[in-house]
Write a protein that binds this DNA or RNA. Structure first.
Lengths: 182, 182
DNA sequence: GAATACATGTAAAATGTTACATGATTTT
DNA sequence: AAAATCATGTAACATTTTACATGTATTC
């Protein structure tokens, strides 16, 4: 799937692996993530498949950049993927919830601490979406002809915000439960 | 992390790889999943590390079962993991949201269909949690001495339910947005 | 008669993470 | 002067998924 995320961004403009990592972290982070090294590897695979091309731009005082651009075949592949139905549910893997599930044998104070730390991290993440991610989207949206795109970007950002809000509500509920009843 | 999930279940009672797959799918599915083959492999790794032991039970007319049991070292490893702070945010990877993000070039009707299919899948998942998962938890909770455990199991189940409810709300919102404004 | 459940596993491919490697520029 | 950021990537390792492989018993 990372392939299509990269094609999606390259469909707007050519970029380097480094650029792609930046823009992914600033936009689709709530529902897709990839490490730098994986992005480089996937770009090579895309090039081998003829879905992108690349050329090296020489630079002074910085390493040369390899800039990738989408090809017509790449655009076709992206469009085909978008049309494909999504038949599976997305999966969430969460070590914190796993710990809560098995926490009966645990010290109550330790469990509460785990939940409170997580609450702070979630609050911070929600703030990042509300400030930074929203600003990045607004900036990209200012380009002409991207009004429809921006509407959809905002919709996905709202998903991230609502997810964090739900998570924080659940943490508050669960902290209260443990304080009172366990 | 799967290691600890398996240790967590084996800490209640010995089980086979097959059993573990069943119980995982019926309880922690909202926040952890593993394939059968991965479970078998991880059990072998746990045995090599001395955290579980196994013995073969012969059966007529069915393949022999290899039953795994947790060791003292395994219990220690589980307890140590539970105490470890969770420093990272859990990540959600969702191809549907990725498609929405890049859907500007897509046919409006196709996008709406994608969202409506997802809505039905989420509704179904929420129903499964409310009926089946809740029943399985209630059954396990009826065993003596598991009242505290059951409280925590229910808390994690509520997370699953609230996640699905949030997702459905977001889908309704987004479907309405696209119908009206795009 | 076909599908599902029971019950086990291996092999290969794909995906994801961590560590290594380099070196300039900018900030503290 | 040290640390962080910009900018690029490779290599090794770990995890996860998919496909293959086998065979009985029970249910639809």
């Amino acid at each position: 799937v990372l392939k299509y995320a990269l094609l999606g961004f390259l469909n707007y403009q050519p970029r380097t692996g480094y650029d792609l990592k930046q823009v992914m972290d600033q936009s689709i982070q709530p529902f897709w993530q990839a490490k730098q090294s994986q992005i480089y590897r996937t770009l090579k695979a895309l090039e081998a498949d003829g879905l992108v091309t690349s050329h090296v731009e020489e630079q002074e005082s910085r390493p040369d950049r390899r800039v990738y651009a989408i090809t017509d075949a790449g655009r076709d592949a992206l469009a085909a993927w978008l049309r494909e139905p999504v038949t599976e549910l997305s999966l969430h893997k969460d070590p914190l919830l796993l710990k809560v599930f098995f926490a009966a044998g645990m010290d109550k104070a330790a469990l509460l601490s785990l939940l409170r730390v997580q609450r702070e991290m979630r609050r911070q993440q929600a703030a990042t979406y509300a400030d930074e991610t929203r600003a990045v989207i607004a900036e990209y949206a200012s380009a002409p002809g991207l009004a429809d795109d921006a509407r959809l970007w905002e919709a996905t950002l709202r998903f991230g915000e609502q997810f964090e809000a739900m998570y924080i509500r659940w943490l508050d509920e669960t902290i209260a439960l443990i304080e009172k009843e366990l």
